Simulated assay, not measured.
Amino acid sequence: MNPVLHAARLGLSRGWIEFKQQLTSVSDLAFTVISTAAFILVLYLQRDATVPGTNVSLAAATLPGVLALMIAVGSLLGAIGALSVEREDGTLLRAKALPQGMVGYLVGRVVSLSVSTVASIFLIAVAGVVLVPAVREIPPGGWLVVALVTVLGILFSLPLGAIIGALSPNPQSGTGIAMLTIGAVTSISGIFYPISALAGWMQGLAQAFPVYWLGLAMRSGMLPDAAAAAELGGSWRTTLTFTVLVAWTVVALLLAPPVLRRMARRESGSAMEQRRVRAMQRIT
């Protein structure tokens, strides 16, 4: 068997095992349950409200943003956090020492994070169908758009998170900086609202990041056509939206492997020990 394919197959198996281990980890499971329950609670509290000036359900308008946020933030931070931890505990160093070990490691990490993200999204979507009558009216084509957007979102978010984590010289500070950056980008990207009310320069800045297009694509699949009137240009800009998302996906997938290989080449026992010593000095 081809060594790369064999490593990828082992990575698939490892990713599934890691996901099942998350289901038995109290801390991992608690975080997922609490965050998912919080979003479901928001939908429940908004179930009888409407967007001011319209007859659009407020819960139905919130749901696309919730799903887009979980994809972007969950996948990005999940990849950054996992890479940071595993650079510190020697997992990457051990993977590097094995034949095609990095291939198996990356495949495993992508599988475990993807399955976790999809599971959370599925639970929230089901809750939306149960709690919000307007969500039950979404046609099959709309759910197909949601599924496609979810796949694209994961495909560009995970590699971007891996790139950010790999470029960070300090794994601990990298996670914190990434959280602040993602929070700033998300706040102007109109995840929960159209950005047409923002200043012109902020609209341009928001459109430079994929988070805006992810939210727009989710809204196009889950909201009625009349809701597009609030968007830029008064339409969903479907062709442009998916072109941008595909472009980000292609760029992220092309850049991630060489960046990760470069990071792996620089990993060594001495480098890991130096980071440990610096961390201990900060504590003391």
Rank of each mutant, 00 (worst) to 15 (best):
A206Y: 10
Q207S: 12
Q207K: 15
Q207G: 13
Q207P: 11
A208T: 12
P210D: 09
V211D: 06
V211K: 01
Y212I: 04
W213F: 13
W213Q: 06
W213L: 10
L214V: 05
L214I: 06
L214C: 04
G215Y: 00
G215T: 01
L216I: 01
L216G: 00
A217D: 05
A217T: 06
A217M: 12
R219F: 04
R219Y: 05
S220L: 01
G221N: 10
M222T: 09
M222G: 02
M222Y: 03
L223V: 05
L223W: 01
L223I: 04
L223K: 01
L223D: 00
P224Y: 09
P224R: 09
P224W: 07
D225S: 14
D225Y: 06
D225R: 13
A226C: 04
A226P: 03
A226D: 11
A227E: 02
A227G: 00
A228L: 04
A228K: 05
A229M: 08
A229Y: 08
A230D: 08
A230L: 04
A230Y: 08
A230Q: 12
E231F: 14
E231H: 10
E231K: 00
L232W: 05
G233A: 11
G233S: 10
G233L: 09
G234A: 10
W236C: 02
R237P: 00
T238Q: 07
T238F: 13
L240Q: 15
L240Y: 09
F242N: 01
F242V: 00
F242W: 07
T243C: 13
T243F: 14
T243Q: 09
T243V: 14
V244Q: 07
L245F: 10
L245R: 06
L245N: 03
L245M: 09
V246A: 15
V246M: 12
A247D: 09
W248R: 02
W248V: 06
W248Q: 02
T249V: 10
V250H: 11
V250Q: 11
V250T: 11
V251N: 10
V251M: 13
A252P: 11
L254F: 14
L254I: 15
L255Y: 07
L255C: 14
A256Y: 12
A256I: 05
P257Y: 09
P257A: 03
P257V: 03
P258W: 11
P258L: 09
P258C: 10
V259N: 05
V259R: 08
L260P: 01
L260N: 00
R261G: 00
R261D: 13
R261S: 12
R262Q: 13
R262E: 11
R262F: 12
R262I: 05
A264C: 05
R265E: 15
R265I: 11
R266L: 14
R266S: 13
E267T: 08
